[in-house]
Amino acid sequence: MPLSKAQLLAWLGKLDAVYAAKKEYLTDLDAAIGDADHGINMNRGFGKVMEKLPPVADKDIGTILKTVGMTLMSSVGGASGPLYGTFWMKPGMLLGGKEELDAADFARFVEAGVDGILQRGRPERGDKTMYDVWAPVLEVVKARAAAGDDVAAIVDAALPVGEKALADTIPLQARKGRASYLGERSVGHQDPGATSSYYMLETLRDVLHA
């Protein structure tokens, strides 16, 4: 089964709720190794997305994605603003005219999105960023799509990989973003951006299984 536009909108709506619920938690994570704003940033960003979505809800998926990207870009405020902004916008430019995303489209979505993060933040694996979650997830997504899985199966396969990757950010020392100023003191904490990225996957799984 492809990912329908309705599911996409549901995903976004649910993300807004998740980031509202996890606002404190994400901010606490960021307080340990950053500037204690990641939860606030994500909550604000998706709140804005909800405001901006209705007028484009009936447009094609490309347009919706671009709108999400543009909105996050200028409302999140932190580093994750341009990062997630590009993450959503790049696939949007690729998927113009689509009303649903099949497995191949979904793989292109994730690939273009992760590409956007790479282009914007120039992270490397092990830098203790959101890319540490997305890099292994992208591998699974591409592999499962190539193997012929549908979107739900792809996400099911990717989720545990993402979960493990998220936990694996704990022992890392940050080399990008605010946390990099902490040097060794960033070791032992889970990366907030990686956490919010994992929520994107988790929420999508929930939507697809609803």
Partner: peptide, 12 residues
């Protein structure tokens, strides 16, 4: 950024 409570941030 446009947020009275948490105004610290940047907007491309």
């Amino acid at each position: 950024i446009d947020d009275v409570e948490n105004p610290i941030g940047t907007d491309p």
